[in-house]
């Protein structure tokens, strides 16, 4: 999940009686599954929460280019290199759609980038872990994109039109990403003993951080309740995590790999896997900036942005000159 613990700025859920006529009309539209479009009236808290959520998602796509980009030049075959490059390129594209969706809410891409670069804006905790071997690329596609899809598929139905439409495009590409990740893992799991070991090691390192992607339990969270009321969050974190575990464990078994959780067990009564407790202390540390790669990720992003400034300035200056010349010619 690329947006974690998004705050809504509310302290309780309003009843319909407490709402103003505008708020009530808005909530009625949401309840009837009518999409909210940019020009329509919306509660300020809805607008702000969406900006936070969509930009956090966009930032995650952009920062997420780094751990995978780390292996583009070292991909083992020309085909794998092309697939990985295309995938990281898709992430840049997803970032673009999402920044555009956020812009419809009255914030510019530059403002959002500044928030990311200053460390004020968050992005998904998962991208603060390092990619140490080629198998990590497979594991990210399989697990990280798999977890992201769990959340993003329902968001295709979310109440805000531009976000919903961006999500429809993104989901098509994400499911391709997940398949290629699983395919890369399959090759390793069926490969030499060293390759199989590489695959198992990647699963060991990425399993728990993937479960953390869904965020801590939000059964009691007023923010989650409000977001669900607004239909910009569709399922609870625990529901999605369970769904992910249920889907992924048989895939690991098929690969002949072992999920690194001694408590993992099929529960016939519940019809779900039981699994162990996530180390939430680690999660909060990573979110607070203490993950293995937080500093590097942010520094790399800021460096690209700052070193690109003169190029963006030149493009603007050239466009202005060209427009002025065209105008002079026409006059």
């Amino acid at each position: 999940m690329y947006a974690q613990m998004v705050k809504t700025g509310v302290d309780h859920i309003q009843s319909k009686e407490e709402m103003s006529p505008e708020e009530r009309a808005f909530q009625d539209r949401v309840d009837q599954d009518i999409k909210i479009e940019p020009k329509e009236w919306m509660p300020e808290a809805y607008r702000k929460t969406l900006i936070r959520q969509i930009s956090q998602h966009a930032h995650s796509e952009i920062i997420g280019m780094q751990p995978e980009g780390n292996w583009i030049t070292r991909a083992p075959t020309l085909e794998r290199k092309a697939i990985l490059l295309a995938k990281v390129q898709d992430e840049a594209g997803h970032g673009l759609y999402l920044y555009c969706a956020a812009e419809t809410l009255g914030v510019s891409r530059d403002e959002l980038m500044e928030q990311l670069n200053s460390g004020k804006a968050k992005y998904s905790s998962i991208f603060n872990y390092p990619t140490l071997t080629w198998a990590d690329i497979g594991a990210i596609g399989w697990l990280v994109d798999g977890a992201a899809i769990m959340n993003q598929v329902p968001l295709q139905r979310c109440s805000y039109g531009p976000y919903s439409r961006a999500m429809i495009r993104i989901c098509k590409e994400e499911s391709f990403h997940q398949r290629q990740g699983y395919d890369a893992m399959t090759k390793l799991a069926r490969g030499t003993p060293e390759q199989k070991q590489m695959a198992q090691d990647a699963l060991n390192r990425w399993w728990w951080p993937s479960l953390m992607m869904f965020g801590p339990s939000d059964a009691e969270s007023v923010h989650s309740a409000q977001s669900m009321r607004w239909k910009i969050k569709i399922n609870s974190n625990d529901e999605l995590r369970q769904k992910f575990v249920d889907q992924t464990v048989p895939q690991a078994e098929y690969l002949g790999l072992t999920v690194p959780d001694p408590a993992l067990k099929w529960n016939a009564e519940r019809g779900h896997y039981d699994f162990g407790e996530v180390d939430w202390n680690e999660f909060y540390q990573v979110v607070a900036g203490n993950g293995p790669c937080n500093r590097d990720r942010l520094r790399t992003r800021v460096k690209a942005y700052e070193e690109g400034r003169w190029v963006r300035d030149a493009a603007d200056a050239y466009a202005a000159k060209k427009a002025a010349r065209a105008k002079a010619k026409a006059a």
């Binding site: 030049t73 390129q89 840049a92 790399t300 460096k303 190029v311």
Partner: peptide
């Protein structure tokens, strides 16, 4: 391909 993720704009 070395530029991917490091270029001046998305």
């Amino acid at each position: 391909s070395e530029w991917c993720g490091h270029s001046p704009a998305l």
